[in-house]
Design a protein around this nucleic acid. Structure first.
Lengths: 362, 362
DNA sequence: GCCTGTTATGTTTACGTAAACATCTGATGG
DNA sequence: CCATCAGATGTTTACGTAAACATAACAGGC
């Protein structure tokens, strides 16, 4: 009987490791292990681990040695469970491939790291509302204390429900929202400065190569352009529209090149401006002598375009930083006021804008 | 007496909420709460939550209703603690601002999401070894099952120690490492194809605008360029070097424009090629008639350069996807073999390359 | 010499979940 | 009519940590 039992136990051991695939990872050392090795209680290990005072230096060294020997790592799941916070910020966004989103994300990650927070990423491929809902629902189960959304508020609205109630949300790159805190570039100021720059150079009016209709950023830049022209008493040419890509800027640019009275164009971003430059160049319109072009964003390459592009600089780093500040402040204050923070832009004058050639009809 | 007691209890309640700042967030509903409301055991709630069969449909509906009413969210910290895994992949990288890293990251995030994994980001501002060590040490305390490093292996080596032992690492964008699994673009093949393309067009040799010396990617592209020239029996011009930026390409380009015998340049990335185009243009060298230029990366804007840039397309999305696949496979298999996976490149011929004008000395 | 306070450490407990095991009900088959 | 079995549900326990509470040793004041 005893033999049988022992045999059974004997075969059990190897089977557990050999026969069946071992799914469980090798468990790393826990506080209890460290405590045992150091000859102290696990609470003392905890105190050392968290840097509390009131631990004898000698004991502390023993514990540290034991930690090192066992390669102890605090288990962050247990820690998070106990403390009730993850020290993690979730970032949800549609695509990272735009300069702006990516730079914002980078700044968010850096700022968050600086505050001792990690950043968890949750990309959504296609910006349908269902997708957003899905993403947020997954976020709800995610280990996240707060969320920063790099997207437009209207895409967020239907989705909110599935966010855990305590999670603070800050939205970047959007229009003013009364339901969320928003941090954004001063689109209006930037666009108006761009248009004013061209008018100041003496252009009779400014054309606008706008971004896609769905984009609020595009819409606000277009609105600001129109407003500035109207304020100055200039005629408002029809809006031409691209999809943010250089390719679309090229396509639209081919048409714009036909317009003899078009001496100045404000493109809603630098990529489209790039395509526009190429189209105008191919059609034999010199820049800036025949046509002035101004962009928006100030991507790193803008200074190397042919010619170097005058554009509106966006401070994405500051946007990201403010998002993190905002979301952390709201967490601490449990604040519920919603507000919009605008980050100023700066006009960067390079070589793609100049005074127009003498007006034809004067 | 009774009054005093009741009063003391009365004042205690408000003080807890009002006087001291309430740090603890309002606790969200737990399984126990749902179980109580639904009139079942918490284990049954767990079963419903995890979609196990063997729960009566009626009971299931009751539980679901209770969940909804209480706004129940599974606590992922507790879940992770119990299951011993976080379903999260950590990504460590120096900067997101390069096209390649960013696109790779995006693909990683997408692939990971597809596999039910979240991605946690850990940027390191300056690529010193100390920084890497710091980042990884933080990662060790992070809730992460595996790590993908978008950086070069040699920067990783000194840092490994602080990674928890069970965490699998896959490295993207690096040279072959015998200590990690590596996924990378076929730098060698791409660079050789670029050089061969120019030689095939009839150029006597090809100059190289290389990336910074510290970069292994730059080094390997330069090596491949040299090898291809040598194989073809062509003279090897001196290497000129930039720092990946368009600005540096411009600076170097001004010098290259002086070299009368320079009819073809292979730039190690598209940004430098952009700067090069501008410099050559300013110096009156026509492209591609006088000088052919080829880039590397195929950034989205490359097709809109003046002229549209011939370049080597990198499939960053595939790199990211393979990183995720690799790291997950290794987790499951507990595999320890290290290998290098190369993602093929593709030569994209546009308008910046052409046959040279008739050779002067023949 | 005893009380008091301080410092260093140990013990108990709870965080929310889910695996393992236990129980209960009702149906099927001999 | 009972053994057997399957399905549905409940109970116990453990994951690793850290707060709260307990204990122990020792110094200083009276």
């Amino acid at each position: 009987m005893d033999t049988a039992h022992s045999a059974s136990a004997g075969t059990e051991e190897p089977r557990r490791r050999g026969g069946k695939r071992v799914l469980r990872r090798a468990p790393s050392a826990s506080m209890a292990d460290v405590a045992r090795l150091a000859g102290v209680s696990s609470q003392t290990v905890s105190r050392v681990s968290n840097g509390y005072a009131g631990v004898n230096e000698e004991t502390r060294q023993q514990v540290l040695a034991a930690m090192k020997e066992l390669g102890y790592r605090p288990n962050s799941a247990a820690r998070a469970l106990k403390r009730g916070e993850f020290r993690t910020i979730g970032v949800i966004t549609f695509n990272l491939s735009t300069t702006g989103n990516m730079r914002t994300l980078e700044a968010i990650a850096t700022s968050a790291a600086h505050e001792g927070y990690a950043v968890t990423l949750l990309p959504v491929a296609v910006p349908t509302q269902d997708e957003v809902r899905g993403a947020f629902s997954r976020l709800g189960e995610l280990a996240v204390d707060a969320v920063i959304a790099i997207m437009e508020v209207h895409l967020l609205d239907a989705a909110t429900i599935s966010l855990p109630p305590h999670v603070q949300v800050v939205v970047a790159d959007s229009d003013a929202g009364d339901r969320y805190s928003v941090v954004d570039t001063d689109q209006n100021g930037g666009a108006r400065a761009a248009v004013r720059h061209l008018l100041d150079l003496g252009h009779r009016t400014v054309w606008h190569l706008a971004g896609p209709e769905e984009s609020f950023a595009a819409q606000r830049r277009a609105d600001a352009w129109r407003a500035e022209l109207t304020d100055a008493g200039c005629p408002v040419p029809p809006v031409v529209r691209g999809d943010w890509s250089a390719e679309s800027g090229y396509r639209v640019g081919l048409e714009l090149a036909q317009q003899a009275d078009c001496t100045a164009v404000f493109a809603a971003n630098d990529q489209m401006a790039l395509g526009l430059l190429r189209a105008l160049h191919e059609r034999g319109r010199r820049i800036p002598e025949d046509v002035s072009v101004i962009g928006f964003d100030d991507i790193p390459e803008a200074g190397s375009f042919l010619p170097p592009l005058t554009t509106v600089h966006q401070d994405f780093a500051e946007v990201g930083r403010l998002c993190v500040q905002g979301v952390l402040r709201r967490m601490r204050d449990r604040g519920d006021e919603h507000g919009t923070t605008l980050v100023p832009t700066e006009l960067v004058v390079r070589a793609s804008t100049a005074a127009p050639a003498l007006a034809v009809d004067e």
